[in-house]
């Protein structure tokens, strides 16, 4: 059959296609694009996996030679923290990448498609989470090198990290929607990403030995609860009950999704 005739007929059908189906397809299209790019930029994946391994084996082993926490070798102790760190960095920077997309006008053609902004936002979030989860799975593959880690806790840890990834990609997209120049990148790294990391208890236990001001700051940091939850899942150590960890992360993720989709929709 002549494809042109088919297309003409389909064209009419498409006009009556449901709203919901159209948006789902838009989300899938954006996700598809992100995944293609993920597959293509292998160097990015390698860097994002090697960096946490350097933390674990160079920093962790070094400090672990003289320290342990709660009966766990320091290198093993920070494994959950470094997993959380790689999710934090990967997610926020993935989101912030839209500043670059906008600069080179890649987004323009996507934004005029008959798909709502909110769906494009969700497509991006899903794309980012896919990248991050693949990176986390690669890091989990190394968990047999950490004797203290309980491998049965991996599914729970993965779930907590996925919710965190959703939250942090949304946060990155939200901030990225506000910036028009790449200088924003550096600012966000310095004033958002690094404080979230250092104040999360990724590298030290969150208990009464910390100075009061630091305790307060750590408890306000949503990433603290990710680290705590993952540490509970993998090492059985925790400062807060699991339901508190999960509850706070879920609420934080919802807030970030709402904020991100609003800011992304208003983006010029």
């Amino acid at each position: 059959m002549n494809p042109r005739l088919v297309i003409a007929r389909e064209g009419i059908d498409l006009m009556h296609e449901g709203h919901f189906k159209r948006e789902l397809r838009g989300i899938y299209a954006v996700w598809w694009r992100e995944f293609k790019i993920f597959q293509r930029e292998k160097s990015r994946v390698v860097a994002s996996v090697v960096q946490p391994l350097l933390w674990l084996f160079l920093f962790g082993s070094g400090v672990g030679a003289s320290f342990s926490v709660g009966g766990v070798n320091y290198r093993d102790y920070i494994y959950p923290g470094i997993l959380s760190m790689s999710v934090l960095f990967g997610s926020v920077f993935f989101g912030l990448y839209i500043i670059w997309d906008r600069k080179i006008d890649v987004l323009k053609a996507v934004l005029v498609a008959p798909v709502s902004r909110v769906s494009i936002f969700f497509g991006k979030v899903l794309g980012g989470c896919t990248d991050i989860i693949i990176q986390v799975l690669i890091l989990f593959a190394f968990s047999f090198l950490f004797p203290a880690v309980n491998l049965w806790g991996i599914p729970l840890a993965l779930g907590i990290l996925l919710i965190t990834a959703i939250a942090m990609v949304s946060l990155g997209l939200a901030i990225g929607s506000l910036f028009e120049s790449l200088e924003g990148f550096q600012l966000v790294a310095t004033f958002v990403v690094f404080p979230l990391f250092f104040l999360s208890g990724a590298l030290f236990p969150v208990d009464e030995r910390l100075p009061i001001w630091l305790q307060g700051a750590v408890k306000l940091n949503p990433l603290t609860y990710t680290v705590d939850g993952v540490r509970y899942a993998l090492l059985g150590l925790n400062n807060f009950p699991l339901y508190v960890d999960i509850g706070i992360i879920v609420v934080f993720a919802l807030l970030m999704i709402i904020m991100g989709s609003i800011l992304f929709s208003r983006m010029k």
Binding site: E10, L14, G26, V110, V115
Partner: peptide, 8 residues
């Protein structure tokens, strides 16, 4: 990508 966004 375009075809998917436009639901072809």
């Amino acid at each position: 990508l375009h075809a998917r966004l436009y639901g072809i």
